[in-house]
């Protein structure tokens, strides 16, 4: 794979993961169990969308066809998105919302920790900046996993169920393909096996404190980050996210 093409694809993955998870978290606005939690989740969404802007702007520059961050966010359809399936899933109950955030934040924490040393100064700078924010996301979600897991019988049952439901979507994050390998050769992407070791240690420590069981590694879903087969949910997310700029193409500011 040509290196520029791989770099473009890799940046879309980074940007789309943050963009779609950020959009999902925005759905909790007016729906969170408490006002403080609503502020927390929407603040996290704001960080994610900020990170997505930086990655997508750079993706557009690498591609060199005049697409900026807005064009990439608002004018691509489902098959052109490169987010992992896990960020597309509906929020579900609060245990699922927090469980997904926890699993993805733990992944981002490991990933940005590695990418801040990438042989691409622009990606390294975005990762270094984002790592600080993601640390707060991971801490917030991790504290909730512990509180719900080690809480009441009902909260424990729901948190365990959320992990069981989400687990089959975690494998995709660590399964390297041609884009990951090309970026690893270029000194940008980390070794995903090593990344998974760090992720496992973090997850296991929190789950132990939360008295939760680590789900078994069974069949893993894939098809999001390479755009081969997204979930049926992504189209609905995009319909909502892209409505305004598609209906009013000249609306540049509010």
């Amino acid at each position: 794979m040509a290196e520029d093409r791989a770099r473009f694809e890799y940046l879309l993955r980074l940007g789309d993961n943050s963009l779609v998870l950020g959009q999902r978290l925005c759905e909790t606005l007016g729906n969170a169990p408490a006002l403080e939690e609503e502020m927390a989740l929407v603040n996290i969404a704001l960080d994610l969308i900020g990170q997505a802007r930086l990655f997508l702007s750079y993706a557009g520059e690498i591609e060199g066809e005049g697409r900026d961050e807005d064009t990439l966010a608002y004018r691509r359809d489902v098959p052109d998105f490169r987010c992992a399936l896990i960020v597309e899933l509906p929020n579900g109950d609060f245990a699922h919302t927090i469980g997904r955030l926890f699993l993805v934040a733990a992944f981002n924490h490991e990933l940005y920790g590695a990418l801040q040393h990438a042989a691409d100064p622009r990606i390294a700078a975005i990762a270094e900046k984002s790592l600080k924010e993601v640390t707060y996301h991971l801490r917030h979600a991790g504290e909730w996993v512990i509180r719900l897991g080690d809480g009441t019988e009902e909260s424990h049952r729901r948190m365990q169920q959320a992990l069981e439901d989400l687990w089959m979507y975690t494998g995709e994050l660590f399964a390297p393909d041609a884009v990951d390998l090309a970026m690893r050769t270029a000194g940008v992407a980390p070794d995903l096996d090593l990344l998974r070791d760090g992720w496992n240690r973090r997850i296991d420590r929190v789950l132990a404190e939360a008295t939760l069981r680590r789900p078994a590694d069974g069949w893993m879903q894939s098809g999001g980050k390479d755009g081969r087969m997204h979930t049926e949910h992504l189209g609905y997310i995009l319909a909502e996210m892209q409505f305004l700029p598609r209906a009013y193409p000249d609306a540049r500011a509010w």
């Binding site: 704001l46 994610l48 900020g50 802007r53 930086l54 975005i126 984002s130 924010e133």
Partner: peptide, 8 residues
């Protein structure tokens, strides 16, 4: 320099 990446 921005304080937060998403700082509006």
């Amino acid at each position: 320099t921005p304080t937060y990446t998403g700082c509006p």
